[in-house]
Amino acid sequence: MRVKEQIIILKIFIAISIPFIAVIIAQLCTNTSYTEISKLSFENEHNPLRLHIIGDFGELHPNTTYNSTLPVKLVAHLMDHRAKVYPISFIISLGDNFYPNLSSVFDPMAHTIMNEIFDLESIKIKPWYLILGNHDYQVDPYDQIEMNKLYAMWNLPDYYYNKTLKIDNGFFVSFIFLDGVVLEGSASERKTKHYEWLEKILEDQAQDPTIKWKFVVNHMAFFSSSTGHADSEPLKQELFPLLYKYKIDIYFAGHSHVMSHFVTEYSSVEPNYTALGKGNYDCSFSTYTPYGTSTNYNKGFAMHEVVQGCGGGDLNLMCTNKTTSMANLIFNSATYGYSELYISSQMVQVSYFNIFNSEPIYSFEIWGN
């Protein structure tokens, strides 16, 4: 056989073999990376809960740093410092977990954030419960569900899910984690099924007297006081009436890179839907506390919206007069930080922290009946 013919045969063999070799390598990598891991959990049989809430945090290349330190690192250290004194049970992420987009489930950026930045003494062994944001949808969002197999602290079992936890005195608290991208999107079978699932849970919980507190976790806020995003008009028209009907206690959201507290009082008549119009807004980075640095409410008085999108992404200006008649703006700030949630059968307390203060810059309490 001539040399030329041998070369042709060799090229054909290589061309045929490469796909099979690639599959074998991929399977080996997958099997190695997906070795069974022990998931972090916590025990909370008879005690109140304390947890941290962070949103829009996974930014490794922000426009602003502090002495060359990433904002998300400062927030992580602030959370760790607080947790040393006031231990927490877990951490909730409000979505937009990575900027820019993950290239795959094995992207080193995920390792940097979860196993380096948050690898701090008092928070590294705490489980995370996460949702997906719009940035997480810019690539295949299922990659982040697959990350359950790679990281012990990572809990994102599905696009939306419910978690009910025992607190003290035989009562429970419900966290309903939503897929805001689907709910804010146009009509689809997937969106319809999501709403059917949500209403079934809310109906069941309305009949259960042991469910003391009802919280809903979503990426998009109903109301936005920032220059980064407007109100979510689809959610105000569709999701808001449903949550108002079942009198949930707190709606947690991120998306806007500010931290805010909105209050919608419950009454016999649901607030009329009001679209946010264009206007000349008064926007700045200052903190807005017209009612003081702490407020108190009775359970059932209002639905509260907690916006916490200051975990590490570039901040938005906050606009104190960018509101609708559907809610009152009680607190607003555009500084990096996180929120702490304390839950007992008697009361709930939400505290807002920023990187410049070890004590809360604002807090509110809801007292049970």
Rank of each mutant, 00 (worst) to 15 (best):
W367K: 11
G170K: 09
G309H: 01
S68A: 10
I366C: 04
S93N: 01
V263Q: 12
D140Q: 09
Y266G: 08
Q6W: 13
I24R: 08
L239I: 04
Q144A: 00
K84W: 06
N31E: 09
D143L: 07
S256P: 10
C319L: 13
S93Y: 00
F42E: 08
Q349V: 15
S122Q: 14
G368Q: 05
S232N: 13
L10N: 09
E365Y: 08
L276K: 13
P71E: 02
D158Y: 10
K247S: 11
Q6S: 12
K245S: 14
V23C: 09
G228I: 06
I54W: 00
T287L: 06
N44Y: 08
T274V: 15
E5V: 13
A76S: 07
D231F: 12
N148P: 05
T69C: 06
T264G: 07
S358Q: 12
E146I: 04
S351H: 09
A152L: 05
E233A: 12
E203M: 13
N369E: 11
E184H: 13
M114I: 14
A206T: 14
N280R: 12
L183Y: 03
T30W: 10
F262S: 05
P62I: 10
M153H: 06
F285G: 08
K214M: 07
L202I: 13
S345E: 11
K193F: 11
E359D: 15
I201V: 12
I21Q: 08
L28F: 08
N357P: 03
L341G: 01
K73M: 10
I366N: 02
H77Y: 11
G180K: 00
K247R: 14
W367H: 11
L102A: 03
V3A: 14
Y99I: 02
K322D: 12
Y151S: 01
E196A: 15
G300P: 05
